[in-house]
């Protein structure tokens, strides 16, 4: 289609398997997968990378990234990743991909302790404030008064507590070397997310220790709004409660 003097300046990364994925229209997982694939390509680590996929919408991440992959039981991705990493040492790079229910509800203990041990892992925490795969239930990160299938009158803080801020919690521990919260609701934020992920992966490759990247992401289906409106909801509702920025970079 292009002219003779055309140069391809943006193409799908090689580490991203060339197939349609199962995510809903406007879902942030597709953007984050693509960023990871780009980083894997740029760093030339595809053949030494293992991704641990969680229970949740992104469980099939291992079908979309052309690297070795491992499924983990709900919440146990950091433990599974610890097992893999302790076998391979720093010759292999383990990316741990988790959602909010996985990382902050059922898997809170594994999250805290892998961070506290300073496992040389890269944690990619996708926070979309809802349980997507099971159909839109309240997550530990659902906002106060947010309506979900299991908080039809809005999340009542008196009953369910305040949403948990993962970066701030991880930031109380000594061991982590990198903690940052990003978002994928705009081109500008996506580019910042890529930068943070790149650093988090680089840290592992260099054997520097535990890196944690929280990504505020869209779940238009779970939120019951249009994809474009979901971008705005991240901006207007999520970011004020979950401030973006770097918490630690050692």
């Amino acid at each position: 289609m292009a002219q003779d003097n055309a140069k391809l300046v943006y193409d799908r990364p090689e580490a991203l398997v060339d197939r349609a994925h199962h995510y809903c229209p406007g879902c942030g997982h597709g953007i984050i997968h693509k960023l990871l694939a780009e980083i894997i390509d740029d760093a030339g680590i595809r053949e030494n990378t293992i991704i641990v996929a969680p229970v949740g919408c992104s469980v099939l991440a291992y079908f979309y990234l052309n690297v070795d992959g491992c499924e983990a039981a709900h919440g146990r991705a950091p433990a599974v990743a610890t097992g893999i990493k302790r076998v391979h040492g720093n010759s292999k790079h383990v990316l741990v991909y988790q959602g909010d229910g996985d990382l902050l509800a059922i898997g809170t203990a594994e999250t805290i302790h892998a961070a506290n041990r300073g496992e040389n892992l890269t944690i990619i925490f996708v926070n979309n404030a809802i349980y997507g795969m099971t159909g839109g239930q309240m997550a530990p990160t659902s906002l106060a008064e947010q309506k979900t299938k299991t908080s039809p009158y809005g999340r009542k803080v008196a009953d369910f507590g305040q949403p948990i801020r993962a970066c701030e919690m991880i930031n109380t521990l000594e061991a982590p070397v990198f903690i940052e919260r990003c978002a994928v609701n705009s081109v500008k934020n996506i580019l910042k997310t890529k930068k943070a992920l790149k650093k988090a992966v680089k840290n592992q490759v260099e054997g520097r220790g535990y890196s944690f990247v929280e990504i505020l992401s869209m779940c238009p289906t779970g939120w019951g709004i249009k994809p474009v409106d979901a971008l705005k909801w991240v901006e207007d509702a999520m970011i004020p409660y979950y401030p973006l920025g770097n918490f630690r970079d050692r």
């Binding site: 292009a2 003097n5 140069k7 391809l8 943006y10 193409d11 991203l16 597709g30 953007i31």
Partner: peptide, 22 residues
Amino acid sequence: TACMSCAIICPDSAIRIWRYAG
């Protein structure tokens, strides 16, 4: 302008960008 914004935000990697020289 080949700014790539559309491709960067596309969750489905459905967009490639060509840039013309000159």
